[in-house]
Amino acid sequence: MNELSPQKLTAKDYATDQEVRWCPGCGDYAILKSVQKTLADLEADPANTVFVSGIGCSSRFPYYMATYGFHTIHGRAPAFATGIKLANPDLDVWMVTGDGDGLSIGGNHLLHVLRRNVDIQILLFNNEIYGLTKGQYSPTSRPGTRSPSSPGGSIERNLNPCNFALAAGARFVARTVDTDQKHMPEILKRAHGHRGASFVEIYQNCIVFNDGVFADFTDKKAAPERQLRAEHGHRLVFGPNNEKGLRLNRDKVAIEIVTIGENGITEDDILVHDETDALLAQMLVTLDGPDAPVVVGVIYCNQADTYDAGVARQVAKAKIAKPNADMKELLFAGSTWTVD
C-alpha cells in the first residue's frame, strides 16, 4: 500500500480541458457541475469511472468528464453500458441520456436495461424537447407543444419517465432539478450507492427551445408551493411552512392533497414516505391535478439482484465445475476417430 494517500480530488479535477459547447444558460451546465461535485464527494476513481451516452445535447456530457467516456449512437447507450459491465463488472458506469434519446429512439433499450437491473446509474435529462436537432417536440412534450414539427401544437400524449421506469421494473427511481445544486448531489449519491440500475430523471431547462417549461415548480418562488421532497421515513408534506401534505383516500386508493389544520386534518393523517413501496411510488410519480405538487427525491428504492452479478456468477460456477477446461479438450469433445 502507498504510504502517502493521493491528494483528494476536487470537482474541478473531474473536468476535462474541452470547451463545453452547450448554449449559454443551458441547464446542462448546472448538472455537469453537480455531477463533478458528486464524484469529488464520493472520491470516485476517474480510472474506474465510465460515462456512456447516446446522442443529443445532453449526451455530449462524457466529453466534459475527466474519466473514461463513450459518446455512442442515438438511443443505444443502455446496450453499450450493459456490454461494458459484462466485460468488467468492477467499473462504475454512469449513463447519460435525453428524453428523445432515452424514451423515443432508445425506449426499448432503456426498458430492458431497467428490467435486467444492470448495475449502472442512469441520468435522464428531461427538457421535454429535442434540443440538438433544433427543437422538435419529444415523447415527454406536453400535448399542444408548438415546435417546428408541430406548428399547430403536438397531439401526442406525453410519457412520464419515472412511471415508465417503474413499469419497466426499475428498483431505484428518483427525480431532481438541474439548478438545485444541493438536492441533486444528494440524489446522485443515493443513486450511486444503490446496487442495480438507478434511474434519475433530471428536469433540465432548454433555454433556447423550451425555456421555462418547468418554471411553475422550479422557480425559486414557486418551488415551496409546488415541489414535494420525498424522504424515506418522513411525512409527505410541502408548502412554504410544510402545511400541506398527501393523504391516502382509502375508499378510492388514491392520494389527495390536504392542508394540516383544515377540516380536522392533523399531521398524523399525512402519509409517511416508504421508498420500498412500489404502489406508493407509482402514485407519487403520477400525481396530477391543479394543486398537486411535483414529487422529487428518491421515490423508489428497493434493492434486488443485478444482471451483471448473475452473469458473473454463472461464469464463475462453470469455471468451478470445469476447472481444467482448455482448448484442446474442447476441440476433442464428442466422438472422434483416428485415421492412421
Partner: peptide
Amino acid sequence: AEDEIAAICSAIGASFAGS
C-alpha cells in the same frame, strides 16, 4: 440482447472495456 442493435452495441461496449 433485446434486438440486433443492442446486440452489436453491447459487443462494442465490451470491446471498449477490454473484452
